[in-house]
Design a protein around this nucleic acid. Structure first.
Length: 590
RNA sequence: GGGGCUGUAGUUCAGACGGUUAGAACGCCGGCCUGUCACGCCGGAGGUCGCGGGUUCGAUCCCCGUCGGCCCCGCCA
């Protein structure tokens, strides 16, 4: 029988137990040896005393860090004054009678649970050692609890967990596919799914009504701190629902998770922000509402501005917008303001006008001499600026001004610590546009995906003014990160065909790419909708990590390389021949 | 595809105008130590300064290239 370190209680004093685990720390005092034994539950101090058990003491002398041992002895209370309250078991210890070395350990490539940060590449190469650190272990155990609670909750709500294929059909819409060549069909390729979107809709047509899956998705795009080529979604879909039904069950799910895992009660219903309002006030479709710095529209104020740049821009349909940084005059030096101009330019700004607010709402510096008294009072009223604040202006198209100020807002908040890290701000962003015009492709493209239902009230505008059509969609935002998104889907094949037409996807193309879905919609498809959440991103935020790599057991580097397994790697010519694949001459064989 | 930062003992980092033997801490090895808990004390081993080329009497340092790592832009329906 084996006992876990942190199962031990005061009432076990005097009883004999066997523990198995790793030697975490080894302290040799000559005639007395202490080790901290670690198993997955926690840590327990073991004492070897030369005078009590000579044989086990001899073995104990040979122990080193990360040796795997089995140790048997008696639990006792630590002598008075030697308790260690930083350990859960710090008032107890095991006095060893016998010890067996189950395995030894070579010199470690890095120290486990070290204070200083270890190069991430080495941590990935020896991932099994990193798992032994408290940080990574706790993150992955948290993840396990998180998914368990999700499954328990959704199973209880009548959802069915149904698997969808990983070897599926490539669709050129959306992100770049990972391709898998087919041996039995040379010249043809499977694609790994970007998400199970079409399959879950097919399941609804099949009558399952409520589906969920915690599922891997694959996208062959460049990596970021919050982007891996394979990542995990909580994918859900429901039949006979409206957006409020999906939103409601998602809120219930998150309220449950936050309460059970973080002991945080969150208010329901969550805040809801219209897409247009989010863009207007926060310059982002995933606003971070943990701080203010709200973007104000000052176009009316500057209609007759003495600044030609402002006046001309307004005349050409542009806007003047601004953010006010409270206490900016104290926080920012003149040099800081100059640097902000460069930052703003990186964000796509043409310039960055500013004014300081001083006593009696007077304006100083920057463009203040071009602002009349009338403009000044309306400007102060609109921004709520006070003595000591700095106002930053953008004069540009609405799109550019919003984007620049949205990013500037985040930049200022991060740089000057305006974000309350203890907050968990959840909110929905709704009423996204259904389409947008892609300058690059010179055509209308879907903002979400082509199966998103238009808002019912806008359906009549589809043919006449498609870009003004809103979608029946909803994104969930946590602390300025998009953590989930969904929509009511199109369940009518005629409407779906109309959408394809607007997206310049010909009926022939639509048939080749999505024919199976269009077929399914013709055979009694129920109204349905759903949502998908980015599990890794949520866990990253809840665990206060800077990267999703720290909540994924086996992540890849920024080059999509796995230092542990050395994947991807070359394959031999026989494998390639079977697949009917020949590499370009200029590709170096590995 | 682009911008920024970065690579020196096992690990985290110093380092020098381009000039003897490249340092520290932790880890490792050996010794001493009966109440430690990041134990302590004494001693020791350990380096192709990412890789290749160039300049130079001489390069870890300067130049060119290359490989890797991290962050960001583009990209991610």
């Amino acid at each position: 029988m084996r006992t876990l370190c942190e199962e031990i209680k005061e009432s076990d004093i005097g009883k004999e137990f066997t523990f198995k685990g790793w030697v975490m720390h080894y302290r040799d005092h000559g005639g007395l040896i202490f080790i901290d034994l670690r198993d997955y539950s926690g840590i327990l101090q073991i004492v070897f005393d030369e005078n009590i058990e000579g044989e086990s003491f001899k073995t104990a002398k040979k122990l080193r860090n990360e040796y795997v041992i089995s140790v048997t002895g008696t639990i006792r209370k630590r002598p008075e004054g030697t308790e260690n309250d930083t350990l859960k078991t710090g008032r107890l210890e095991l006095i060893a009678k016998s010890v067996e070395i189950l395995n030894t350990c070579e010199v470690l490539p890095f120290q486990i649970d070290e204070e200083s940060e270890v190069n991430e590449f080495i941590r990935l190469k020896y991932r099994y050692l990193d798992f032994r650190s408290k940080r990574l272990k706790d993150n992955l155990i948290f993840r396990s609890k998180f998914t368990h609670l999700i499954r328990e909750f959704l199973n209880g709500k009548g959802f069915f967990d149904i698997e969808t294929p990983f070897l599926t059909k490539s669709t050129p819409e959306g992100s770049r596919d990972f391709l898998v060549p087919s041996r039995l069909n040379n010249g043809r390729f499977f694609a790994l799914p970007q998400s199970p979107q079409l399959f879950k809709q097919i399941l609804m047509v099949g009558g399952f009504e409520r589906y969920y899956q915690i599922v891997r998705c694959f996208r062959d795009e460049d990596l970021r701190a919050d982007r891996q080529p394979e990542f995990t979604q909580l994918d859900m879909e429901m039949s006979f629902v409206e957006n409020k039904d999906v939103i409601s069950i998602a809120e219930e799910l998150f309220a449950m998770l936050f309460e059970k895992l973080l002991n945080v009660k969150i208010e329901r219903p969550f805040k809801v922000l219209d897409y247009d309002e989010a863009m207007d006030k926060y310059g982002s479709d995933k606003p971070d509402t943990r701080f203010e710095l709200i973007i104000r529209n000052l176009t009316d104020v500057f209609e007759n501005s003495a600044l030609n740049v402002f006046k001309e821009n307004i005349k050409n349909g542009g806007v003047i917008k601004a953010v006010c940084l409270p206490e900016g005059s104290n926080i920012l030096s003149r040099k800081d303001i100059d640097e902000l101009l460069n930052t703003a330019k990186e964000f796509g700004a043409k310039g960055l006008a500013w004014t300081k607010v001083s006593e009696n709402n007077a304006l100083e510096g920057g463009i203040s001499k071009f602002i009349s008294d009338g403009e000044r009072s309306r400007l102060i009223a609109a921004t709520g600026a006070k003595n000591g604040d700095i106002i930053f202006y953008q004069s540009d198209s609405k799109k550019t001004a919003d984007n620049v100020l949205g990013r500037l807002r985040l930049h200022l908040a991060k740089k000057y610590n305006l974000i309350n890290k203890n907050r968990l701000d959840l909110l929905w962003v709704v009423n996204f546009p259904l389409f947008e015009y892609s300058e690059e492709e010179k055509k209308i493209v879907a903002v979400h995906h082509p199966f998103t239902s238009p808002a019912v009230k806008d359906i009549e505008k589809l043919e006449t003014d498609p870009l003004s059509v809103k979608s029946d969609s909803y994104d969930l935002v946590l602390n300025g990160e998009e953590i989930g998104g969904g929509s009511i889907r199109i369940h009518n094949s005629k409407l779906q065909e109309t959408i394809f037409k607007i997206l310049s996807i010909s009926p022939e193309d639509a048939k080749i790419k999505f024919g199976f879905l269009l077929d399914a919609l013709r055979f009694g498809a129920p109204p349905h909708g759903g949502i998908a959440f980015g599990l890794d991103r949520i866990l990253m935020i809840l665990r206060n990590e800077e990267s999703i790599r720290d909540v994924i057991a086996f992540p890849k580097t920024q080059k999509a390389y796995c230092p542990l397994t050395d994947a991807p790697s070359g394959v031999n010519t026989i494998q390639l021949r079977e697949l009917g694949i020949k590499l370009n001459e200029n590709i170096t064989k590995i």
